[in-house]
C-alpha cells in the first residue's frame, strides 16, 4: 500500500503527490460533468437536467435550512465541499486510486479553507468590525476561548475526515489481504455509506461554523445596539 504522499511528478520546484493528481482528476471529472450538464440545459428538462436540478436544489435547500438569509452566498462553497469530499471519499473504491481525503495534507487544506471561509463570509456579510467584535461578546475575557475553539474545531475537522477515511481504507486493505478478493465487498459497501456520511458531516459542520459566525456577529450587533441605548 503506497503512501498518499508518494510523489508522482515534479513541476519545477513543486512535488506533485498522488493526492494532488487524484484531486485534479476529480476536478476534471466534475468540470466535464458540469460542462456536459450546462450544455444540455433547456426550458424543458431532460433526465440529466432533472437529476442535476434535483441535486443542486437539494443542496441549496439544505444550506437555506441552516442559513435562510445568506444561504445563496454560502451555497457554492458548501455544495462544492459536499460534492468534492463525497467524490474524493468514493474515489478510493477505484482500484489503484488513493482518496485525497485519506491524506492529512488535503483534509487539513479543506479544514483551513473552511476556517478561512468562516471569517470571509462573516466579514463580507456583517463587516469586519462587527464580525471581529463577536469574539469579544459576551465578554472580552472569553476571547482566548473563542480563539482556542476556532483552532481546535478546525483541527478536529481535518483530523476527523482524515482519520475516518484512512481507517476505512486501511480496514478494507487489511481485510482484502487476510480474507481474499470478495470478502471486503461488505466493507466497501460500508465504505460508500461512510464516505457520503463523512462528506455530509464535513460540509454541514462547515455550514454550521459559517452560520455560527454570522449569527454571532448578529448577536454582537444586537448587544451593541442595546449598550448604545
Amino acid at each position: 500500500m503506497e503512501s498518499a504522499s508518494h510523489i508522482v511528478l515534479h513541476l519545477g520546484p513543486l512535488d506533485i503527490t498522488r493526492t494532488v493528481v487524484t484531486t485534479w482528476g476529480i476536478m476534471l471529472l466534475m468540470t466535464i460533468v458540469s460542462w456536459f450538464i450546462r450544455q444540455r440545459l433547456g426550458p424543458v428538462p431532460n433526465r440529466l437536467q432533472a437529476a442535476a436540478e434535483g441535486v443542486v436544489t437539494a443542496l441549496a435547500d439544505a444550506v437555506r435550512d441552516v442559513l435562510p438569509t445568506h444561504g445563496d452566498r454560502v451555497f457554492p462553497f458548501v455544495a462544492t465541499l459536499w460534492l468534492f469530499i463525497g467524490l474524493a471519499n468514493l474515489s478510493s473504491l477505484i482500484p489503484g486510486v488513493h482518496a485525497p481525503t485519506g491524506d492529512l495534507s488535503a483534509t487539513a487544506a479543506l479544514a483551513v479553507v473552511t476556517f478561512l471561509s468562516v471569517h470571509w463570509f462573516g466579514m463580507r456579510i456583517d463587516g469586519v468590525r462587527l464580525y471581529l467584535r463577536h469574539y469579544l461578546t459576551p465578554s472580552p475575557l472569553l476571547l482566548p476561548f473563542h480563539l482556542i475553539g476556532e483552532l481546535t474545531r478546525t483541527v478536529a475537522l481535518g483530523i476527523r475526515l482524515f482519520g475516518n477515511m484512512m481507517s476505512l481504507e486501511m480496514a478494507a486493505f487489511l481485510v482484502l489481504l487476510v480474507a481474499g478478493l470478495l470478502v471486503p465487498v461488505p466493507i466497501l459497501m460500508l465504505h460508500i455509506v461512510e464516505a457520503l456520511v463523512q462528506a455530509y458531516i464535513f460540509g454541514m459542520l462547515a455550514l454550521v461554523y459559517i452560520a455560527g459566525g454570522i449569527r454571532s456577529a448578529d448577536s454582537a450587533r444586537v448587544s451593541e445596539e442595546r449598550s448604545s441605548q
Partner: peptide
C-alpha cells in the same frame, strides 16, 4: 506536505 496542502 505543504506543497500538497497549498495545492489542495
Amino acid at each position: 506536505d505543504w506543497t500538497t496542502f497549498l495545492l489542495e
